[in-house]
Design a protein around this nucleic acid. Structure first.
Lengths: 340, 340
DNA sequence: CTGAAAGCGCTTACAG
DNA sequence: CTGAAAGCGCTTACAG
């Protein structure tokens, strides 16, 4: 036998037609059990595998999902946010469990990204993952929607979302962790991280933070909480924290928009000989695996990545199969550790 | 226009044959520049994309690489080794640059993994990534080789490797970082991590460690360095370090088989009030992004993941295209930080 | 430079 | 329960 075996080879070997082979391998009840078993045995022996290209072409679908992972081009080359990597792991597993393959593509926000996976029939649907400047790509999402491309996006729920969105309850997370700090007697709060509508997830965290401070009287009516801008990297957290300390701003609690920022902040604190949490409490957001191993271990808000990955995949498959798919908000839990 | 446009739609619109459309879109010099441009414009207008399934079927190839990422089933669910994630990032980028798509699949070592990506024509070749019990899957690799499946493996170079291997010079890394510690006056060494032929990469690091100690007279002839077994997770590093400290073993330098282990070790040191590096020097291996942010920052051996990803992809494509592909050993550099 | 035709390897409606 | 045939949307050898 030269080259790979085809269904015709099996048919020849089994003394049946090629149609019967195809039916048998797909477990069609139209074929008697005995013939089915016989054909399967021969297929196995010849190491036959259905050619996916032919099968997909004929069926006009691909049993493949595409994941577009957006990276912040401002961030460090090799440093992909561990939170997304953990999502990637759970999405991969959920995809496999559902019988689909997963095509992956990293995209730079800055680039003119193209989501032609579905147009080229390489994928039946697309998962969009990544923080980043929402406003920049809103147009593209709307175009995707117009083209009837199936896609789900991980992100913040807003009034008019193009497509379906699965996200974490960022407002609740920011709100709860701030209340925790207030309960511990903290008075002077600063939020470090992006907090405008370019990154709605961080903004929601900030809003929860702000509302908790207002409700508990830390903020006077009409006042807005203190906010220092940073992108979601350790380096940015480190630099901003240094600047914050230099500014002489009175602070005894810092709420960071992500764990990565918090790790940079902890590092700056140590360098400037501040004691965490005695002098200043630091909390993060995401609960990346390393949050347990910082010094001190980091209090943070856990995003349930395993659940999130499953829901993303489930939602996308629902769209592909034409079932109803709705937006989902996943609860975010505060994880108490020693940094607060 | 209902459904997606095909090359026949473009042909109709352009008043040429479908063959000419196909040629024009592939930039064949057989088609005049003017016709080419005209056809491309129409294709763009109709939002036409070549159907990959049809194109692949016809050409008997897929322009897709598959990445099998093996996870250690003993390790924490959500915690994928950051080193591999960083490799994943660089492999994704290198794959895209070479004009291929990337299919990803996570595999449990324990499972009966099947690499039928190439058999099903879903991928032209396979990249195997992950530490793990080499002996367990040696048979499978040999079977892959017999079936003429194109694959590259990330790992240790050994005498009789099935297939092509790209790896880091683990022996050199272990050797150099140990010499660094000896230069700093350390006398009592322990290696934490797996060091048998089930995980040849860790074993190579241990061998480099051992040989450096022998050459410098820290080990008497015939003696073997002290070695405590651990899997590559923070938790395992933490537990083993606790046991080591409890044992009363005299130690002033610990060489860890991975940064993850070292992070657990640092955490145990802190808890038991040892000062790093004054009491005990700790070094890791991998230089994961967080190594810079541990407390104290971790001295470690850098694996050049960007280069590694590029070489893996390059090597695999060489095999696919029938060119000569040889094993590659990448240099490993010691990164000095405060933990040693 | 262009077109008509074959064929990649399947799945499935149609006929028996 | 089974088979002959059409067709998914391309690419490319062949003929002009």
């Amino acid at each position: 036998m030269k080259g790979k075996a085809t269904s015709f080879d099996i048919a020849h070997e089994a003394g049946v037609s090629q149609s019967t082979v195809s039916r048998a391998l797909r477990d069609s009840p139209l074929v008697s059990i005995e013939t089915r078993e016989r054909i399967k045995a021969i297929a196995k022996e010849l190491n036959y595998k259905v050619d996916k290209n032919a099968s997909n072409l004929r069926q006009q679908q691909s049993s493949t999902l595409a994941l577009l992972l957006f990276e912040d081009p401002t961030s460090d080359d090799s440093m992909i946010n561990p939170f997304f990597l953990s999502m990637l792991g759970s999405i991969t597993r959920a995809t496999a469990k559902a019988g689909y393959d997963l095509l992956i593509s990293f995209q730079q926000f800055s680039n003119d990204w193209h989501a032609d996976f579905e147009d080229t029939h390489k994928a039946d649907g697309i998962i969009l993952l990544g923080y980043g400047d929402f406003l920049d790509y809103r147009d593209k999402l709307e175009k995707l929607e117009q083209q009837n491309t199936h896609f789900v996006r991980w992100g913040a729920l807003e009034e008019h979302n193009p497509g379906v969105v699965v996200g974490s309850n960022n407002y609740q997370g920011g709100y709860n962790i701030t209340n925790h700090l207030i309960d511990r007697g903290r008075k002077h709060f600063v939020f470090i991280g992006g907090a405008d509508n370019h990154s709605p997830e961080f903004l929601a965290r900030f809003n929860g933070f702000n509302d908790a401070l207002s409700e508990r009287g830390i903020l006077k009516p009409g006042q807005t909480a203190k906010h220092w801008d940073a992108i979601s990297t350790e380096t940015s957290g480190y630099n901003v924290c240094k600047a914050l300390l230099d500014s002489g701003e009175k602070v005894d609690a810092i709420v960071c928009a992500s764990d990565l920022i918090a790790i940079g902040v902890l590092s700056a604190m140590k360098e400037s000989s501040y004691n965490v949490p005695d002098d200043i409490a630091i909390v993060g957001y995401d609960d990346i695996p390393l949050a347990r191993f910082t010094s001190p271990p980091l209090t943070t808000v856990k995003q349930n990545t395993i659940l999130a990955g499953e829901i993303l995949v489930e939602t996308l498959i629902a769209k592909i199969e034409g079932r109803h798919a709705k937006n989902v908000l996943i609860d975010a839990d505060v994880i108490l550790r020693e940094s607060s």
